[in-house]
Amino acid sequence: MTTPAPALLSARGLHVSFPGRNGDPVARAVDGVELDIRTGETVALVGESGCGKTTLARSLLGLVRPTSGSIRFDGKQLDHSSRALKAYRRRVQLVLQDPSGSLNPRHTVYEAVAEGLRIHGTDGDERDAVAAALSRAGLRPPERFFLRYPHELSGGQRQRVVIAGALVLEPELLVADEPVASLDASVRGEILALLLRLRTELGLASLIVTHDLGLAWNIADRVAVMYLGRIVETGPVEEVLTAPKHPYTQALLSVLPDAPGDPVILTGEAPDPSRIPTGCRFRARCPVLASGEADRAGVAGACRTEDPAVLGAGPEPGVACHWARPRVSG
């Protein structure tokens, strides 16, 4: 059995909390996360809106300071001083969901891509670096796009400019927050193919934040399913998405167009990070508990009173579910 490569980015015991307003309870947006991303690996972080995945991504980028826990990059603890974060963000770049909102409408494509070089004061020829980044992002010949403005481009071209702006600094890790959510279906495949090609050609690691399990299937090596601030299932993408163990993952997959059987409609209130229940955090919406299946399996009491342990960060599959764990070990 081969030993997995050391993590490029790792989180251990990560918590991010925000104070409530007017005496409201503290919101535990990230509530104990262990996560590794290795060089050249693409990890998809999936879950509903409000589950904490964007806060987790922002914390890994150094944009939100953790309440507790640790983040390490290339073996070193993340330093939140301004100087250290500037150096860190050259190696770890963010690609946002909405390219129209990411690009200054008054800046040309050249200025948008060159901005990172100017901020970080890199050596070398700026024009050559901008041209190379645009070319890698699929905008060829790059010089044809230098003097264009965002409104003169299609949605797919704008997203490629955003990706080129990240690539120009030659990062080791991309964090992409819903990178194709705002694009037409005809363009989504092109951008996904581009991200896959960048992994192959440049050895880039990626964290893809998405609510779309179909996207995760097409692009990721591993998937981490997040619910109410915590990763509840993780493992190789083929294993998790073809044989999901956690009832939440099963429900997410059941509504995909090609999913077998009837969709599982989750009842109850949407997750609220200021009111995390005792026991399993999914229990109020869990169809296994509601149907009596957890009672028949003898785990209903644990579901209501015992918080499943935080999943480890390793590459092996894991599930934080009292009902699923006996079935996995058996």
Rank of each mutant, 00 (worst) to 15 (best):
L35P: 13
L61S: 09
G32W: 06
A164R: 11
A297M: 12
V43F: 07
L256M: 11
F146N: 09
A185I: 15
V168Y: 03
G116M: 05
L202E: 03
R197S: 00
G214F: 06
L194F: 02
M226R: 05
V299Q: 04
H151M: 14
E115V: 04
R285I: 06
V299N: 15
R230M: 15
G138K: 00
P6S: 07
P317F: 00
R144P: 00
E48W: 01
R136A: 10
V95K: 00
I231H: 07
D212L: 03
L174G: 01
E239T: 14
E48T: 09
L45F: 05
P257R: 02
A216E: 11
P171M: 04
T249K: 10
S274F: 03
R72W: 09
R325Q: 11
T39Y: 01
G279M: 10
R91F: 06
A297L: 06
D24C: 08
H15N: 06
V95M: 09
G155V: 15
I231Q: 04
Q159W: 08
A251L: 11
D184Q: 05
T267Y: 02
L139V: 12
G101Q: 12
V30T: 10
G75R: 14
R296T: 01
G301T: 13
A131R: 11
V288N: 05
R38S: 09
A29N: 12
T55Q: 05
G292I: 00
L61W: 15
K86E: 03
E41Y: 07
E306M: 04
I265M: 12
R28G: 07
E34C: 13
A112W: 01
R83M: 10
E238F: 02
L207A: 13
A137G: 04
D125C: 03
A11H: 11
A220W: 01
R83H: 14
A137T: 03
A320Y: 04
S186A: 15
T67V: 06
Y149P: 09
C321F: 02
V264D: 10
R90I: 07
T54K: 12
P277E: 07
L196P: 00
K245R: 12
L14H: 02
S186F: 12
H151Y: 08
E115S: 05
V319R: 02
P19G: 11
Y149R: 10
L213S: 09
V95N: 02
L167A: 03
V130H: 06
I37M: 06
L194I: 11
L139F: 01
I37L: 08
R89T: 09
N22R: 14
R296L: 05
E233M: 08
G189S: 15
G121H: 03
M226Q: 05
V130R: 08
T55N: 13
Y248I: 09
R148H: 15
V168T: 03
E170F: 02
T234D: 07
L134W: 01
V26C: 06
L289S: 10
R144W: 09
V92M: 10
V187A: 03
E293T: 04
A224G: 05
F282D: 15
R283T: 06
L147Y: 09
V264I: 13
R281I: 10
P271L: 03
G292F: 07
L213F: 08
H322M: 05
I119H: 07
L14S: 08
A133V: 07
L63P: 09
L204Y: 10
L103F: 05
A324G: 03
R106L: 10
D36C: 15
A133D: 04
T242D: 15
Y227L: 14
A313K: 02
G189F: 08
A44V: 05
E143S: 13
A132V: 12
